[in-house]
């Protein structure tokens, strides 16, 4: 039985991960626990003492899905920069891949799929820690892992398309600081976007992370509006679609020109 080329790329990434996972365990399990302890329990305790609830939720319940999805975005964003340029330029493994029957487009697709899966692995760990802390009121919460994967792919596809066309990593810290970090802070992760100044509020809908966070929150709280869920999913899928269109071309240009 034959395995599609895209999945053979995933297999390779999974093997590398399996060999190196010990070094990654800290960021997978310990980081969510620290985040939840500081934001959910520490800060959340203060919020509860002063104003009680946020959007009708205990602060821990509000912030947990935000952190879950935002962590997935952060992981996906950084995995879509240095490792991509590494594969094309420093370590050059991507050139080894396209010398086999696997084409550049399939390599791109496999890479994005793997990044989504890996982010879901992290999200699952996060969800487990959050559930143990009592931050996941609904059994639908399991779907937050999917929301995280979708959001990760929505960032991975366009950023990977950008990274493959770079000659150096100079722009990467800039993207992290000017792109990823502001989104992390202002996409309804730590506080509802209704708290933003009224002039900025409409821009929140432009943040793919906001759509991801809203999906994640719908899942962990079990409170959702079906139409809104459809829109959030559609926006994330659109980001993946645009990223893939550019990515497939950019991979071919860089690796098979």
């Amino acid at each position: 039985m034959s395995t599609p080329p895209l999945l053979r790329v995933v297999e390779r990434e999974a093997l590398v991960y399996a060999r190196l996972w010990r070094g990654l365990a800290f960021s997978t399990f310990v980081q969510p626990a620290l985040y939840l302890a500081a934001m959910g329990i520490g800060l959340g305790g203060m919020v509860s003492a002063h104003s009680g609830r946020v959007d009708g939720l205990a602060y821990l319940d509000f912030v947990a899905p935000g952190l879950l999805v935002a962590s997935a975005m952060q992981l996906a964003a950084s995995e879509s920069m240095w490792p991509v340029l590494g594969g094309a330029k420093w370590m050059r493994q991507f050139h080894g891949v396209v010398a086999t029957p696997i084409g550049p487009g399939e390599l791109f697709g496999g890479f994005v799929l793997w990044t989504a899966l890996r982010s879901m692995l992290g999200a699952a760990a996060f969800l487990l820690v959050a559930a143990l802390l009592g931050a996941v009121p609904s059994a639908w919460g399991i779907l937050a892992v999917l929301a995280a994967g979708l959001c990760a792919a929505a960032f991975c596809a366009p950023i990977t398309a950008f990274s493959i066309s770079q000659d150096s990593d100079l722009s990467f810290p800039l993207i992290m600081r000017l792109g990823v970090l502001p989104l992390f802070l202002f996409s309804g992760t730590f506080f509802p976007v209704s708290q933003l100044p009224s002039g900025l509020r409409p821009f929140a809908v432009l943040s793919p992370l906001w759509h991801g966070v809203e999906l994640g929150r719908a899942a962990t709280t079990g409170r959702f509006d079906f139409a809104a869920v459809v829109v959030h999913v559609a926006v994330l899928v659109a980001c993946i679609g645009v990223g893939a269109t550019f990515g497939v071309r950019a991979f071919a240009r860089r690796l098979s020109a």
């Binding site: 093997l15 590398v16 060999r19 190196l20 370590m91 050059r92 493994q93 991507f94 050139h95 080894g96 010398a99």
Partner: peptide, 12 residues
């Protein structure tokens, strides 16, 4: 194919 520059997975 044996490329001009090695592109092995060096960490494996």
């Amino acid at each position: 194919v044996v490329p001009q520059e090695d592109n092995l997975d060096t960490e494996l």
